[in-house]
Design a protein around this nucleic acid. Structure first.
Lengths: 142, 142
DNA sequence: CAATAGTTTAGAATTATTATAATGTAGTTT
DNA sequence: AAACTACATTATAATAATTCTAAACTATTG
């Protein structure tokens, strides 16, 4: 079976029509071993290059947000200038390499569960996320 | 002694000239019991109202960033649309109330230290921050 | 109090994101 | 497989957040 079948399936599941652009986007996003972190700009470049075909910025924004709303992508905000998306949508933690501006998944086993002893009264915890900022050892920190 | 003396001092320490606008800003920012979370927009409004005098957006941006660079303010990014600053610059964790869009400091004693068992090799950990998103109990989560 | 170095300001420029409206296309119907 | 329809894509315009600019202003120094 052609490798795109599952993407077409996936798009249909989510209620999106499997158009050429969206299938290309899926290949860039989901056709990989490891989870993948990207900015919208990264993604536009990668799709244009890999598929050597231009894709409109608006399409990328719309489709990324459609995937996000349906839970196939997750937004991670580092600071006001750096917003990433992650193909790993489960609750998990991140390293952020300040030297390379790279976002790296934290293996579930490499960090102990966060123990919150006291929550805001009357509220339910929806998510707990840890961001660990790292940098080269021999360098002044941010 | 006039209440502004310490702000003038503080500004001088940081290498900023104690102009009228900056002293006003300091009053809004630092003249309070509890730590204070705000967006740039919040701050402009508060200064204008409290001091009943207009202040330029550019001045607020410049001065906030000057304070941030010198370590008197800390940026906290919730998602790409919500960037907050915090007058508590020590490493600490936050609750984010998704109902009210309010950022709340987490008391140091209310959360156990985060235990990171394995770091990226060759890198030094600069900061570890936990963001706990909460919402009203009887409400569908984000 | 004059000189100067740094500051404030309005508005222009820039950047990231979203909206728009015309054109195009996937999927369905015939 | 032609044609229909609903949804997509696109270039561009609009909006929003932030930064830049250059002229007018002000705190400090001598």
């Amino acid at each position: 079976m052609p490798k795109n079948c599952n993407f077409i399936e996936k798009l249909r599941e989510v209620g999106l029509r499997p158009t050429k652009q969206r299938v290309n986007m899926c290949e860039v996003l989901f056709n990989r071993e490891k989870t993948f972190h990207f900015t919208i700009n990264d993604l536009v470049k990668m799709i244009s290059e890999k598929m050597n075909q231009k894709i409109s910025l608006a399409t990328v924004y719309n489709t990324v947000h459609a995937f996000e709303k349906k839970g196939y992508l997750k937004e991670i905000s580092i600071d006001s200038h750096k917003s990433y998306f992650d193909t790993n949508t489960s609750a998990h933690h991140h390293f952020f390499d300040e030297d390379t501006n790279e976002l790296i998944d934290c293996d579930e086993n490499d960090i102990d569960p966060v123990n919150i002893k006291k929550n805001i009264t009357g509220k339910k915890i929806n998510s707990v996320e840890v961001l660990i900022k790292v940098a080269s050892d021999n360098q002044n920190q941010k």
